[in-house]
């Protein structure tokens, strides 16, 4: 499949996402320059981390006016999978493709460290290769990742099962001490109602190789590759998967995790063995 990676002038994780997609996953990858209204045939679009236009006003506030974002919005409306990472997440919020906003971190300081994420929903194209409840160890690196939404909006987001990743302790328990930025409901990752647009503050592209200290980010990339493989046209497949509840997936996967999963998503076993080997690494 082909990854399209948007490049705003202040993007600085664009090469990292490109490297993960092409060199680690062995997929096609193309950079999408922000001034070009052209997705170059991408099957999935990544809005990478960075500080798109300097972000002196608000993170992501200017990027939504870029020509590329018009195309990304249309792509998302057609059901195309879009992943915003860090600043990309902030851009999705500013563009209204995802609900809510980001505040400065509780403690007001930038934080770069590995955190633990509990996978809440697996019926999105970016979490389908994970187990519900699985704990992923993936780094964050941001100063404004304190997710905020008014309480009504927050209730609606929760009711729609749009929270797909939460900050947790290493065992997957929610605990404020393990929430690195003060995010409401410990929200680390979110999808839209149609479940094809996902934003997450942590950086899965920084956790795809054992040499870098974790391979748990592969779960995110393997999900999208798996979702694409199981259908010629990603969008109808994605809608089907949206209908399957997380609970059903969990039940189906539980008894013999790797086998069952391997049949359902060809890519899954790869993701899982990668995670296991991370656990073993000395």
């Amino acid at each position: 499949m082909r990854f399209g990676i948007a490049v705003f002038p202040g993007s600085n994780c664009d090469e990292d996402a490109f490297h993960a997609a092409r060199d680690v996953l062995g997929q096609d990858a193309e950079y999408l320059w922000h001034k070009d209204a052209d997705l170059k045939g991408a099957d999935v679009v990544i809005l990478p981390g960075g500080f798109a236009h300097g972000d002196y006003l608000r993170t992501g506030a200017m990027a939504r006016f870029s020509p590329i974002m018009t195309e990304v919005r249309a792509f998302a409306d057609r059901g195309g999978p879009v992943l915003g990472i860090c600043n990309g997440f902030q851009i999705l919020l500013e563009s209204g493709l995802l609900p809510g906003a980001m505040l400065r971190n509780r403690g007001l300081k930038y934080r770069c460290e590995h955190v633990h994420l509990r996978v809440e929903q697996i019926d999105t194209p970016f979490t389908s290769a994970a187990r519900a409840g699985q704990v992923l160890r993936i780094p964050i690196g941001h100063g404004e990742g304190n997710y905020f939404a008014p309480s009504e909006m927050l209730q609606r987001i929760e009711a729609n099962r749009q929270v797909i990743l939460r900050y947790a302790d290493p065992e997957g328990r929610l605990d404020d001490a393990w929430n690195p930025n003060g995010s409401a409901n410990a929200i680390a990752g979110l999808c839209n109602e149609a479940r094809n647009v996902v934003g997450m503050m942590p950086h899965p592209e920084r956790a795809c190789e054992a040499l870098l200290g974790s391979v748990d980010g592969r779960a995110i990339f393997d999900s999208i590759v798996g979702a694409f493989r199981s259908a010629d046209q990603p969008s109808p497949r994605l809608r089907r998967s949206a209908m399957a509840s997380a609970e059903a997936e969990r039940l189906a996967l539980q008894p013999s995790v790797v086998g069952a999963a391997g049949n359902r998503h060809p890519s899954l076993s790869m993701g899982r063995s990668a995670s296991l080997s991370a656990g073993r690494s000395r």
Partner: peptide
């Protein structure tokens, strides 16, 4: 931890 020490995914 206030410094981004991981960007460029080369830090081993």
């Amino acid at each position: 931890r206030q410094y981004d020490h991981m960007v460029r995914t080369n830090t081993i």
